[in-house]
Design a protein around this nucleic acid. Structure first.
Length: 119
DNA sequence: AAGCTGACAGCAG
DNA sequence: CCTGCTGCCAGCT
């Protein structure tokens, strides 16, 4: 253990967490922000997603929705229905741009993940 | 360097 | 339930 390599910008942390979202599950921007210990930066989480296209490995941004399960970022997937289709393809039911059973499908990193592993 | 942005969240009406 | 206003802060121009 010599240097750090922990240069991980806030964005990188967001991506790291987002990549842990299980297939067929979803989380919220606020949940990720809160998990990173920076509650209030939920907007940055979404902003970070705007930079994710082209990243390797890819970030399942379609699994990140707002606090009520609304597909607020659907307009950033090329097609307004792309995000919904991606989710439905994973078995996530969408109704009126909202994730059905959101509360049940919600994957909270603060519970599922260990913060010390991402700090 | 200074100001603006924004894929949100919380609260009030 | 919905609509609108405010706060939040890292990143970008």
């Amino acid at each position: 253990m010599h240097k750090k390599t922990q240069e991980d910008s806030f964005y990188d942390k967001v991506y790291a967490v987002a990549r842990q979202i299980p297939h067929g599950r979803v989380t919220s921007y606020g949940a990720i922000a809160n998990f990173l210990g920076t509650a209030g930066t939920s907007r940055m989480v979404g902003y970070a997603m705007g930079n994710c296209p082209g990243l390797m490995p890819p970030v399942p941004a379609h699994r990140v929705v707002n606090r009520i399960g609304l597909l607020t970022g659907k307009h950033h997937f090329g097609s307004p229905t792309m995000m919904q289709q991606l989710l439905e393809n994973e078995g996530v039911e969408i109704e009126d741009d909202k994730v059905k059973n959101f509360k049940k499908l919600l994957w909270d990193p603060a519970i599922e993940l260990n913060y010390d592993d991402y700090k």
